[in-house]
Design a binder for these strands. Structure first.
Length: 533
RNA sequence: GGGCCGUUAGCUCAGCUGGUAGAGCAGCAGACUCUUAAUCUGCGGGUCGAAGGUUCGAUCCCUUCACGGCUCACCA
């Protein structure tokens, strides 16, 4: 990296990447600290989707930026599983059974598949398994555990003490003000586990009295020992900011709007003796090109696994790192996938100095590449192969990844694992999302032979003879030869092309023929053509 | 009603610490009698939504307006 200190004595690493800028802001606004706490959190009320992931990866990237500046970071991730189960998502099995658990904390809802100890745990586990794959390793905080252990008792009491103040703050943005008898807590009934309860009073210390609306029973609980009392989201959030001393936490635009929960928490956090974290707003993630092939079981939720199925972990990071958080972008499952892979490969070439660009662009791509790495960038450039070509090789080899890799003569041992992942993604994409025109299968003896007119049949025979000498041809010469064959038999080239595609892949069109033949290799083509000779 | 974001080449968008714009795709031409979003090369004058302002200078800063989108005001 060359220094260009046009200005002051700024270090040469003066990055314009949003993660670095945010990291600088955190250090500046929060001052010198032993470590900086970066927080993220999700409510596991359903499948955690790729939109939620933007939150997580945003924190990860900022955390890494801080570490790259030599700072220590505590990256916490809160599972808000003590939140009430309000609605059964459309993609969950056994919705009727789940519906009977509405109004209870998510952590008490059973996993209807029986694989996990709870519905919440099932949703959490899916994420916890996948995050390390993309290089995200936060410290998980399970809110149910904390609430049940009454670790938030002090916070709850503080909220109760500031009841009127909180009410007024929240009322600032409400159309209808909170009732006079509003309490900044919600209570899960000890009789039903549901939050259909009414707070009747608080003794000014640790005793809270409520009535369970379903049973009509009343009781007084001790905040220091009960698991029944929880803070509602808008209060819970600032309480945790104060408790964990959160220095940075982004939020979606829904929270960030004036009157949204981040906005109110920003003010109410003072009640708990804290200050609001440095933040930014991130926009939503759209999905493109996944229509039609979504399995009914996943509804229209796109999970992180769904994305990792067709994009490598590095590219998943790249997608988010290279996009400013406050702008919306689409994750594509259609032909854009090719472009994304090519963009990333280009970024990689720039990083390894294989491709030259101007200094400004280079600096930018360099940082994007670094942040996209799950770990450190490999010492040697990963094996590069155009995604489209890779797809063709996989199609020709019927998805046999080992065969594809074995056919590459210039690949090194160290490059193989990375390419294998890329191959799996490519093959998944072909199977799941590639347009029909894009895919094909080489014909076998089990497929019916094409009936060809006499001239075309002669062409194919002639072509077969050429294939016997395939080693002698390069792409250009082979292309010329194909035309020559057509002309020799007085056949229109277009008709000959169609015939060859019919014979080879049973379709009227296919990949650019000459290069396709060479990719397939003599043996495969010969195998198909032999019954036409 | 409040907040946020956008409005740049036919299309999708870059351009973010101000120095009169740049990629991909499409298009055109050629290499090759070439079919596919799968070869390579060449070709980019678009009032940077409108009007004011600051400045030696604005796509980039400020103000106002128009249009589009999202979001909050119920819960998280």
């Amino acid at each position: 990296m060359s220094e260009h200190n046009k200005k002051t004595n700024q270090p040469p690493t003066q990055s314009v990447h949003w993660a670095d800028i945010t990291a600088d802001r955190i250090i500046r606004e929060k001052g010198d600290k032993e470590y900086y706490t970066c927080a993220s959190g999700v409510t596991p009320s359903g499948t955690v989707h790729i939109g939620n992931f933007r939150e997580i990866i945003s924190v990860e990237l900022v955390a890494r930026a801080l570490r790259d500046k030599g700072q220590k970071v505590r990256f916490i991730f809160s599972w808000d599983e003590y939140d009430v189960f309000r609605k059964v998502p459309s993609n969950m099995p056994e919705p009727e059974l789940l519906a009977t658990y509405l109004r209870k904390p998510i952590t008490l809802v059973p996993d209807t598949t029986g694989e996990f100890e709870s519905y919440a745990r099932r949703n959490e586990a899916a994420v916890e398994t996948v995050l390390p794959i993309v290089g995200v390793n936060p410290e998980f905080i399970y809110q149910a555990r904390h609430y049940r252990a009454s670790e938030y008792a002090e916070g709850i009491r503080t909220a109760l003490e500031h009841r009127q103040e909180l009410r007024e703050m929240l009322n600032q943005h409400r159309t209808s003000p909170l009732a006079e008898d509003w309490w900044p807590v919600s209570v899960f009934s000890n009789f039903t586990d549901k939050d259909t309860t009414t707070v009747l009073g608080w003794d000014g210390e640790w005793g809270l009295t409520y009535r369970c609306e379903e049973t009509g029973k009343e009781e007084t609980v001790d905040i220091r020992t009960t698991s029944a009392v929880k803070l509602p989201w808008r209060i819970d959030w600032p309480m945790r900011w104060a408790k964990e001393s959160v220095d940075f936490e982004p939020a979606g635009k829904d929270h960030h709007s004036e009157g949204g929960s981040f906005d109110t928490a920003k003010h109410t956090v003072a009640v708990f003796g804290g200050t609001p974290p440095v933040t930014f707003q991130y926009d939503f993630v759209r999905i493109k090109g996944k229509g039609g092939k979504i399995s009914s079981s996943s509804g229209d939720v796109v999970s992180i696994e769904d994305v990792l199925e067709i994009y490598t972990p590095e590219i998943v990071r790249y997608l988010f790192a290279a996009t400013r958080p406050n702008s919306e972008f689409a994750i594509s499952f259609d032909l854009d996938v090719l472009k994304i892979y090519e963009d990333y490969d280009r970024c990689e070439r720039i990083y390894y100095g294989v491709q030259q660009v101007n200094e400004k662009k280079r600096a930018k791509e360099l940082r994007n590449y670094e942040l996209s790495q799950v770990d450190k960038a490999p010492g040697q450039i990963p094996y590069q192969i155009p995604f489209r070509h890779l797809c063709n090789m996989l199609l020709v080899n019927n998805g046999d990844i080992d065969a594809v890799i074995a056919s590459l003569e210039d690949i090194t041992e160290a490059q193989i694992p990375g390419l294998a992942i890329k191959c799996r993604c490519a093959w998944n994409w072909i199977k799941l999302y590639a347009p029909e025109d894009f895919t094909y299968t080489l014909q076998t003896e089990n497929d019916p032979a094409q009936e060809l007119s006499a001239p075309l049949s002669a062409c194919v025979k002639n072509f077969s003879a050429v294939v016997e000498q395939l080693d002698a041809y390069d792409e250009k010469r082979l292309a010329e030869e194909i035309y020559a064959i057509a002309h020799a038999h007085d056949v229109l080239p277009a008709d000959f092309f169609t015939a060859v595609y019919q014979v080879l892949i049973g379709k009227e069109k296919g990949p650019r023929l000459a290069s396709f033949i060479l990719t397939c290799g003599k043996a495969r083509i010969h195998e198909i053509l032999k019954r036409y000779t």
